[in-house]
Design a protein around this nucleic acid. Sequence first.
DNA 1: GACGATGATGTTTGCGCTCTCATTCTGTCA
DNA 2: TGACAGAATGAGAGCGCAAACATCATCGTC
Lengths: 342, 342
Amino acid sequence: MSPRHPSDDRAPNQVDVARLAGVSTQTVSRVMSGQQNVRPETARRVLAAVEELGYRVHAAAASLASGRTRILGVIVVSTDRYSTAALGVGIQQAAAEHRYTVTTAAVADHASADAFVEAFDRLERQGAEGIILGVPVELDSPAMRLRTARTPSTRNERLSMHPDAPLIIDQHAIARQAVEHLLDLGHKTVWHVPGDEYWLETRQRRETWEQVLTERGITPPPVIPGDWTPESGYRAGRTIAAIPEATAVFVSSDEMAFGLIRALHEAGRRVPEDISVVSVDDIALAGFASPALTTVRQPFEQMGRAAALRLIAQLEGVEISDAPEDVHPELIVRSSTAAPRG
Amino acid sequence: MSPRHPSDDRAPNQVDVARLAGVSTQTVSRVMSGQQNVRPETARRVLAAVEELGYRVHAAAASLASGRTRILGVIVVSTDRYSTAALGVGIQQAAAEHRYTVTTAAVADHASADAFVEAFDRLERQGAEGIILGVPVELDSPAMRLRTARTPSTRNERLSMHPDAPLIIDQHAIARQAVEHLLDLGHKTVWHVPGDEYWLETRQRRETWEQVLTERGITPPPVIPGDWTPESGYRAGRTIAAIPEATAVFVSSDEMAFGLIRALHEAGRRVPEDISVVSVDDIALAGFASPALTTVRQPFEQMGRAAALRLIAQLEGVEISDAPEDVHPELIVRSSTAAPRG
DNA sequence: GACGATGATGTTTGCGCTCTCATTCTGTCA
DNA sequence: TGACAGAATGAGAGCGCAAACATCATCGTC
């Protein structure tokens, strides 16, 4: 161990670097945070000392002193659904580009509203400067409003009274595209298998499904319950197979569509010849169902990215150059839909 | 605003609480960290003050003073694969139970080894006390060894020379179960579609596939390349469909199996009558493929949980009561495998 | 009823960094 | 050449908390 190194085994700090480089700690600080007004030669000396000592900035100390943490919090429900993972990828990417860190708080599926408040608290305590609510429910309790008022977060937008506040993604557009596609093919009506009642998206899509049918003078048939899982899709499929007049179904997720189609096949109903199916998500496997699924793609990764970028822009108080334009769902037509048999 | 409240709008701190409760800051600290040796009456007064002021512990300050962060870092590759999400759920759960926070660093898929080193650095700088490497590759560069030596992390185990160090999950057991299941059904040989070459798991499974065949005096057929995606499975399926003598395939993921089976069907080969297929993972949709997939389940959630608990135990220097027993893969027999036709 | 043992609380100090402000250095122009 | 703007650097304070240590109250014991 060279005599220039601190002899004890504690991690090197700014003082050690400053001493070795022959500058003040303030200069070390400036170099580490990439500020201007440091002579290249000085910066080089500092960086050499940093390298030699293996120094790294102590984030807790820095954020205590500066009041900034550059931490983004994410609240998600504990599910292994594809959507959660893909959202996370987008968030991580955007955060990393702007040198933010992401910390996640998971909440049990179907948890009470209190659980979200608690997760919010955990993230605030941890120092999160902004919080992304990748969350299935409307959070408009007084407790939640108190928190979203002091810590910027997504989904504020839904709670705020601005009717033109951009949504992360337009669930109504998703449902409309799906239902109209089926009606335009000539189906007399469209049955619906919604997702878990707990999710806001579920309600939004169901409302729009009803609305589109009503617009065309069709009385919506009863809803066939679902909960996102393939098993629930299978149960729904058995129900629908027993309804001879059903020729078109709007299912709220691809995973349910897999179960639904299997049940239809077992009951001897062909897809799309007897029954057309449109679902939502466009997961990687959607094209490999039998038949390949016609589905409305949700660009989860872009959504996560957009949410993070918007939040960061708010935190920095600036326009971000690569500001995300609105993210739109897209109908992908494959082989699970067709015109009804004449 | 009551006169007892600090008039400026800065967040309340320990001093404010101490003053309002009529105690010292140290007592506030003791109450907040749930220590013993505080009279119930005193604790109540403190908590009342905390409530009134909306005080919350400042994590950065606490960790600067205590030297502890209770942060667990996770390095993952940026994919939306099911496995990543499910692992995360298990990690989050275990961390929350022990009052740890999780922060994630994502690395681009197929990134260089340097990218993992950099992610490790980011997490260390952020204060992570332990790091879970949910990572596809062997990381045994000097730079990485330097880091894993000072910050506890999983997968050390694979790098360490202890041959009996418990693996997170035994990839050899996975491959062995799959291949032996097919051979025991009477197939003369087993073809293999591995995952992405980049992944350690891929190599481990292929090695075992070769080994099991060799043990039984069978010369392994050529490998049909794959990369985890359903598309690659589909391509592999077309290749295999053109091999008349092929009757059994071990595919390294369920998603590839979906693609593979579709390609076989399109080529007129029936599953399992003409060709048996075993895959790996047991994703939610595995039971809803046509035919339902025989697959080796990887208990991702338990794996994540086990990794986190083991790391926490190491950090706390204690045995954790609910220590995870080893996590084992399990063959789930469904309908994609059968004996070869006589 | 004096003594120590224990529990409850307070005081002081410093964690490692960035902020503000002061000082020194550099180059430029009259 | 001297003065001065502006860049580069340094000095000192303090962010909010917990550790270590000091002090005070309380209790049972003989």
